[in-house]
Nucleic acid binder design. Structure first.
Lengths: 158, 158
DNA sequence: TATTGTTATACTCTATAACTATA
DNA sequence: TATAGTTATAGAGTATAACAATA
């Protein structure tokens, strides 16, 4: 068996007490790393990465969008998005058809295989969330979700 | 003025509603990205990165530790830690002296310049935390900190 | 034999400039 | 001239194998 089959649960920045522990941002990072490590493991079983997963989901639910619109939504630079879209197309999960009104652009759509995989991935990620966030009390879990959503409106500027 | 002088507040994975918004993990990631972007900007003004910052802080408060111990604590692979330590030493922020009991190892210690910079960095990061997490209510901020700390004990394995 | 620090290397993710074809 | 998609490239961050010096 390969190293990729072992589930590596190690958290960077771990165990020993130090001044970093006084920062909420540090704990936020540690929490994300725990979640990310498990999420990546779950997605790997479907041969997906974070980027291909979120791209496939977005294409599956918003048909006929352009690459640049999708890339923008996902916060991925257009040049870096090309390889992601190419992989999904090569695997038969999405189609790219020329926009008839603007022949520079593509319209991206999920195939039935893509929709099926997106569905599988969502179910797997819901199970992953249950496994991880289910370790919190129901109240804490709801509070965490509610509080984290507030960050979307935050400015990080001076 | 260079691009590094502008404060880029953009959050990846942004604005448009999609199925990802149903996942707490997604919001956790977004929150970390908001915090990380601002933190990196703050540290850049002291010519520090996340890695050099956390390494300097750890060395400053735990004298006479070995590289491998420190790397382990920070969750950084030993080979990748070499360049970080070299940079801090080159800038006169830390010293590396051979361990007399084990001449394979180094003992790392912060210089007075290193201690001063660590102090500056901690103060800057405390201000950064006030600015960001201060946008939450006092109750929400305390709840978030408390809940996030629970993740340190979580297993992400099956 | 095992460990400390190191080198070399490779793979991912990210960021920018410049090209092409269309508009 | 501006935009959509692309190419090339460069920089971080991260991971592993293997080496020299020392234990």
């Amino acid at each position: 068996m390969s190293a990729s089959d072992e589930h590596d649960c190690k958290v960077a920045l771990n165990t020993r007490a130090n001044v970093l522990h006084g920062f909420t941002g540090y704990h936020l990072r540690c929490a994300w790393q725990v979640v990310q490590a498990d999420l990546m493991h779950v997605l790997k079983s479907l041969d997906l990465r974070l980027a291909t997963y979120s791209t496939l989901l977005l294409i599956a639910e918003t048909p006929d969008q352009r690459q640049s619109t999708l890339a923008d939504t996902l916060g991925i630079e257009r040049p870096n998005f090309v390889a992601i879209v190419e992989e999904l197309e090569r695997r038969g999960l999405i189609t790219r058809t020329r926009d008839l009104d603007d022949r520079r652009a593509y319209c991206l759509n999920a195939t039935s295989e893509g929709l099926a995989l997106a569905d599988q991935a969502v179910k797997a990620c819901q199970a992953h969330e249950e496994k991880l966030f289910g370790q919190l009390s129901a109240e804490d879990r709801a509070q965490l979700d509610r509080i984290l959503r507030q960050f979307r409106t935050f400015e990080s500027g001076r």
